[in-house]
Design a protein around this nucleic acid. Structure first.
Ligand SMILES: [Mn+2]
Ligand SMILES: [Mn+2]
Ligand SMILES: [Zn+2]
Ligand SMILES: [Zn+2]
Lengths: 132, 132
DNA sequence: TAGTAGTTTATAATGATTCTAAATAAGTGT
DNA sequence: ACACTTATTTAGAATCATTATAAACTACTA
């Protein structure tokens, strides 16, 4: 299994639940956006055994803390995550409630001129809301 | 009362609850960011009578729909609102969990090069996360 | 003043997320 | 392999922001 080392190196034991979740999240051509509920559904579809919802939450948060997932700031009752951990931005289609990646190259360079005393910039994220 | 006309013109009846909430939200020198719970506290402090939480939710959503308030997309368990309805951006201090306005002039002009078929850009919002 | 449509309110319901604590599994040393 | 420790999983309960309900109340209009 190609995720065993990745997990061990992160100090996470490679359990069969985590490995299954890795398969669903990372063994794909393209990156994608998801909510916990969508992920739960994907897992059910893929494997026949079920992983408890608590474990899915635990794992997603563990992966996020390790930097393998990002949370996307968006106004929704559910939290959105992203398997694309590169610096990039998003369109948010308000009608479809769907996120679309916006590569850095699709947005001009962003220069934050103001500084806040004693604080460092950790990330700069652009959200472009779309309507019809 | 200076908010009566504003409300009437929006098709909202100027009830005493709405007028009180207008006072708290709009009768200030500076704009500010708030959650429903923070707003509830402000209202309690200001007036001695209480407005039901349901009414606060209703009113905030009504004002948002009319464009007198904006929701700020951010990862938090509570929804943040902004009385500053001009186009602008935000710092988010991760440690303090506080929002700080970033004026348009503090961010270079943002040029979204990619187009999505049949969709119009409604807003472009930048969130700059700050750490120590 | 009467009628009506809009609003407020207490309270219940919802639903995403987190917590709990017991069972299970993984890592470690022998 | 075995014993031991520690991490993880799990079902279910708890939390808590938000929304729904439906009855009482209020603003507008004629
Ligand atoms: Mn979360
Ligand atoms: Mn809301
Ligand atoms: Zn993305
Ligand atoms: Zn603001």
């Amino acid at each position: 299994m190609k995720y065993i080392e990745k997990l061990r190196n992160s100090g996470l034991r490679p359990t069969k639940q985590r490995l299954q979740i890795c398969e669903v999240l990372f063994n794909t051509e393209k990156t994608f956006h998801f909510t916990i509920n969508e992920l739960e559904k994907k897992i059910k579809d893929r494997a026949n055994n079920k992983i408890s919802l608590a474990t899915i939450y635990n794992t997603v948060h563990a992966f996020e803390k390790k930097g393998y997932l990002k949370q996307i700031p968006i106004n929704s009752n559910q939290t959105y995550f992203d398997t694309n951990i590169t610096d990039h931005h998003h369109f948010y289609d308000l009608k479809e409630e769907k996120l679309i990646d916006l590569e850095n190259s699709d947005v001009g360079p962003i220069n934050i001129k103001r500084k806040i005393n004693g604080k460092k910039i950790k990330s700069v994220e652009v959200l472009v809301k779309l309507e019809d």
